[in-house]
Simulated scan of single mutants.
Amino acid sequence: MTIAVDKLSDPAVRRLLGAVNAGDRDAFFAALTEDATMSDDGSARDLADWVDREIFSSHGHIEVQTEKSGGRALVADYRNDTWGEMRTAWRFTVTPDGRVSHFETGQA
């Protein structure tokens, strides 16, 4: 059973993943701090390059299966046109002003 993105516990994560599923790059970056960072399978990545390649140019979509840590740790089925569908884990660091400053993703 999936958890609808608009029902996720953390508002910052909800905004970020809502932007992913809407294909809205501007809203995605608005949900991040200006100096946001990310990692994929434990390796730091260039955020803008990764997001364009793995989400926006390849029609990324996320379906959350479970959430923990107040909605900042997720297991989700993620799919895009490049890799198909895979079970992924996501962790988010959220600043006091309610934006994501870092996220980690990788295979679950």
Rank of each mutant, 00 (worst) to 15 (best):
G60T: 00
A36F: 03
G60A: 08
D77E: 13
E54F: 00
M86R: 15
D46E: 05
L32D: 00
D40P: 05
G70C: 01
R91C: 13
K7G: 04
H59G: 11
R79S: 09
G84K: 10
T105F: 05
V13Q: 03
F56P: 03
P96R: 12
A44K: 13
G23K: 05
F92P: 03
A12C: 05
D97Q: 13
D46T: 00
A27E: 00
G84D: 05
G106R: 05
G42H: 05
L74I: 02
L74F: 02
S9A: 11
W90Y: 11
T93L: 12
D81F: 11
A31C: 08
N21Q: 01
A108P: 02
V13L: 05
W83C: 14
S9Q: 09
E85K: 13
I3Y: 04
T105I: 04
W50F: 09
F28T: 03
D10N: 12
N80D: 05
A89K: 15
A31R: 08
D41T: 13
D40N: 14
E104S: 15
E63M: 12
Q65A: 08
V100E: 03
R15N: 07
A48Q: 08
D49I: 09
T37G: 11
S43H: 10
E104L: 12
F28V: 02
M86P: 03
V75K: 12
G18W: 06
D26W: 06
N21C: 02
T66K: 13
A31G: 13
T82Y: 13
A19W: 03
Y78L: 14
D41W: 07
N21P: 00
T82D: 11
L74D: 00
G42F: 08
V75G: 09
K7P: 04
I62E: 01
L47E: 01
V5G: 03
F29R: 15
G70V: 01
W90C: 04
I55C: 10
D24C: 02
D26P: 08
H102E: 08
E85H: 06
A12L: 01
L8E: 00
D40A: 07
A22C: 05
S57K: 15
E104K: 14
A27M: 04
F29N: 08
L47M: 00
R91L: 15
E63V: 14
A76S: 14
L47K: 01
R14S: 03
D52V: 07
A89G: 14
P11G: 08
K68W: 04
W83R: 15
D52M: 09
L8A: 04
F56G: 06
T33C: 04
I3G: 02
R15V: 03
V20H: 06
T37E: 12
K7S: 13
E54D: 01
T95C: 09
T37V: 13
S43F: 07
H59Y: 13
E63C: 10
A22H: 07
D52R: 11
T93D: 10
T88G: 03
A44G: 08
V94H: 00
V64P: 04
D52W: 10
R45E: 06
S43N: 12
S39M: 05
F28K: 05
W83V: 15
D26A: 13
